[in-house]
Nucleic acid binder design. Structure first.
Lengths: 254, 254
DNA sequence: AATATACCTTGATAAATGTCAAATATATAA
DNA sequence: TTATATATTTGACATTTATCAAGGTATATT
């Protein structure tokens, strides 16, 4: 029991993930059903269609949630970082695959036992509910990006998201989150393309364009420096771009 | 108290919406804080940025959740039908506008009182949590559609979604959901475009193409007949379409 | 019935993005 | 270090979708 407490005490997300909703004694009983797991980069945690029999806390690293079409096209429908929680689903089976983007440490719980635990710990359920709402919110933001933004704005939006994440702690090889932010990208151009609904070539071209217009600098292809994050934000959120239909809108704006 | 019970008894979504999680006595106290509201088509229920001070049950009709960019481009990030629940958000303010697509009946609750009620009714919270998970799921499905499907597939996907909804009850002017489904579309081509990340012209062209290839028939522009729903499903989910990047995938599929 | 209004369809053309291909850079392994 | 594989950039060209424009259809109003 004392040992159990010790394990969670060294957990990097103890105070931010779902466990932050629990007091010490509850944490100890939750810890008993947990299993630690280290996963190398680019490994599958579960497949689309698999029975969902575990939940996970992401302690370090990053995870891609991937949907694949019959002909092989694929799309990343979510990215999970510490202190995210993974595995909740409506049905008994997963509707996407989960794959590590970089080396990742997880903490897993068997679904049955965890669900039971939840019934006696409403504060934990509320915490997970709240994180789910946040996820829905960012999924809808992404929907706007995919539905109505041009490739230049999309890539800027992606970098902005990463930069903001640095800001909120968990630096993955980067400096400060505010102006002058620099970080190492944990994704290939192709992975970003799958997240942005583009091709890797288009992503690469927009990186070059952002560099050319001095919105970012690229000491190397995976290292990004953002001299002025507001400038990046402006590109991501308003930049003049003719792609989507604007005619009827102009009228509305009068 | 008796009168209160009577009101909810006639509610068309009593057994399917969040209230289905409650027993009669709990329902009566919830009913006390509720207010009935009828809204004509194309009216705003709340704006993006508004303080979120109410929750809603959708009793009849349909609601569009709309995000708008600075330059006027807009995107529908969600559609709500009976028996959906609306208004949950992470923050104190809404991050999208809600607008009726057709005449709609709502039942509203003041946020403070409802939140308090939730703390004493975990079964209700669980129900809402579950519906939120379902919404996240469909948002991710939509993300795949927006990120990786061509316009033909998108329009087919939209019609499939509507057809399936008919199937699950709540016919909005339509016949059976299974083969031979016919229904009246409650959306203009422009609204569908805003949902699908396309222009209204492209939506119109894909309607014509679906008609030309006998996947649907169109007695009039707003009335759709689906002779074979599996055929429509095939178009929505696999149809050969060259748009998104498939090169690296082909290797993976070997 | 005539007129007005909103919605829809279709064509011609332009712009954005995907596809294919080659060269270069970077990382990994021997 | 060199060799090898992988990732990235860039160019040329093809395709898809957006844009602009005109005409058609349906519905509501007078």
């Amino acid at each position: 029991m004392h040992a159990a407490q010790l394990r969670c005490q060294t957990c990097p997300v103890r105070t931010t993930n779902i466990c932050s909703a629990l007091d010490d004694s509850a944490l100890i009983s939750l810890e008993k059903m947990s299993r630690k797991r280290t996963v190398k980069a680019h490994e599958v945690i579960f497949h689309d269609g698999d029975l969902s029999n575990q939940y996970f806390n992401v302690k370090t690293g990053a995870i891609k949630l991937i949907k694949t079409l019959g002909d092989g096209r694929q799309h990343i429908v979510g990215l999970l970082y510490p202190p995210d929680f993974m595995g909740q689903c409506v049905n008994t089976h997963h509707t996407y695959s989960a794959e590590t983007a970089i080396d990742t440490e997880l903490c897993s719980y068997p679904r049955g036992a965890f669900d039971l635990f939840l019934t006696t710990h409403p504060e934990l359920e509320r915490k997970i509910f709240n994180m789910t709402l946040r996820e829905l919110d960012s999924c809808r933001d992404w929907s706007l990006l995919l539905g109505r933004k041009c490739s230049y704005e999309r890539v800027a939006g992606f970098l902005l998201m990463i930069a903001k994440r640095m800001q909120d702690g968990s630096p993955e090889g980067g400096g400060p989150g505010r102006n002058g932010a620099h970080f190492q990208l944990p994704f290939t151009r192709g992975e970003m393309a799958d997240y942005l609904g583009l091709t890797l070539e288009t992503v690469s071209r927009q990186f070059s364009r952002l560099k050319g217009e001095r919105v970012i600098s690229l000491p190397s292809s995976r290292v990004v420096i953002i001299p002025d994050i507001d400038m990046l934000g402006a590109v991501a959120n308003v930049e003049t771009c003719s792609k989507p239909s604007m005619r009827q809108r102009k009228v509305m704006l009068v």
